[in-house]
Amino acid sequence: MDPWVVTMMLSGSLFLAGVALAGFLWAIKSGQFDDEKKMMSQVHFDDEQELNDAAQQQKKREELKKKEYRPE
């Protein structure tokens, strides 16, 4: 086998593994595995409404920031 092919395949697969690992680390850091019971059951309630709710919360937080930065 050409050394070139080996290099390509190795770096390709290691890159993919790296992406997966990075995703996993992000999930740990953002606290998704902190509550094992919730993690398993909350999957059932995952729909559009939840997404809207999360967006709503985010908006609230940003609005608050805006309010604070406003010079009075």
Binding site: D34, E36, K37, S41, Q42, D53, Q56, Q57, K60, L64
Partner: peptide, 27 residues
């Protein structure tokens, strides 16, 4: 009692003005 209770509390609090975050640990 159940995951729905967690959901309800979080949603009810999220609906309130001024509540930025409400996260309940089910465990």
């Amino acid at each position: 009692h159940c995951a729905a209770c967690v959901w309800l509390n979080e949603k009810a609090l999220h609906k309130m003005d001024g509540v930025i975050e409400a996260s309940i640990n089910y465990t």
